[in-house]
Amino acid sequence: MTEQIHEVRQHLFADRYRVSSWLHATNVLARLIRDHIFCTLWLDGQPESFNTLLLDMQEELLWVDVPLNFPQNVRPEWPVTIITRMDGLVSGFRSSIVRMEKEAVVVRYPDALYQLQRRQLYRVPPTVQDPDQVAAYRQGAQMITGRMQDISAGGLRMLSRCPKDFPFQPGEQIPQLIFGIRDSAPLRMPAIVRFVDAYATGASGVILGLAFLDPPAADQEKVAQYVQARDREIVRLLSIGLRSSAKAEPTSWKGRIKRWWKT
């Protein structure tokens, strides 16, 4: 789930996922506090993430438990991102630090809460019978074809030959990505290169991590339905299930999580 949370952070904060009801957003935050549900926290601009809990909310502020090994040099106004999973939904918000207290990080109440269904996090490989051909039409460079390694509602991984003209670079925008999924006509949508990995040392292959850019809602729904169907097939095949959201069960709870509990 950690890798999936990192992935969803890339596209969670789109307008389409913004919760329109202020009351619903407040109820979600209140439940995270009441049920002690674990969250993942990022200091924006830093690669490391931290496990934490929401402790309290009052007026325009939220109290967040100080994570283990949290940096000591954080300063006011540092942007933070918090994401969690609950009832099949991923919820998240962006905020900024107001101050550090002995056992809490105080952040501003978020301007907005974002949610998406858990199925949009799944990354699944296609079956042998499913379409797996991908074509990436590049701006000012040759078109590249390859094979889909896995796919989620937010993007896909593609194995292809290294380009002979211009190598791929993270951040490169692909004006048109064409690929197929089961029971659908070929889908066309723009994408952006998130990562580039060599397939093997000295090999001519490359693995691309591609994220969809503002895909049409209908096409994204087709991908999400396919991913959900494949996930169910894999679960049945392996006879395993997804674990539900983990809850913290502290021995003692008196308004704030005690420091000894984290260790």
Rank of each mutant, 00 (worst) to 15 (best):
V227M: 00
E221W: 06
I257L: 15
A248R: 11
D183Y: 04
V227I: 03
G205I: 00
W22T: 08
V98G: 02
T26V: 04
R161C: 05
E249G: 10
D132F: 03
Q225K: 12
R9E: 11
A185Q: 15
F38K: 10
Q133I: 10
V134P: 01
G209A: 03
A136K: 03
A246G: 14
L53H: 10
F70G: 05
W253A: 13
Q176C: 12
A217W: 07
N73G: 11
G88R: 12
L23V: 07
S21Q: 12
V80P: 02
S91P: 01
A135Y: 09
T127L: 15
C162L: 13
S95G: 11
Y109Q: 07
W260E: 13
M57H: 14
R34N: 10
P250S: 12
A14Y: 12
Y226L: 01
L210T: 07
Q4T: 07
W63P: 02
W63T: 04
L12P: 01
K247W: 13
P126A: 04
S184F: 06
F38G: 10
W42F: 05
L43G: 02
G180M: 08
D111G: 12
T52W: 04
V105Y: 02
P216G: 05
S91G: 07
T201Q: 10
D65N: 08
A30H: 11
I257Y: 06
Y226S: 01
Q115M: 09
A141H: 14
D87P: 04
P250Y: 06
L12F: 04
T145N: 12
D130C: 06
Q176E: 15
M86C: 03
W78M: 14
Q4P: 03
A200G: 09
E249L: 15
G154L: 00
G155M: 02
N73V: 10
D111I: 00
I144E: 04
P79A: 15
V90T: 14
L177P: 00
E172G: 06
A153Q: 05
T52R: 05
Q120K: 14
V19P: 04
Q133F: 12
S49R: 11
G154M: 02
P126C: 04
G88P: 06
E249R: 15
G154F: 00
A112P: 01
E7N: 11
E7T: 07
A185R: 15
L32N: 04
L54S: 00
P170Y: 10
M57S: 10
A200K: 13
D165F: 07
Y199K: 08
M143I: 07
D132E: 13
E172T: 08
G202T: 02
P186T: 09
L187M: 11
R108H: 14
V107T: 09
T84P: 05
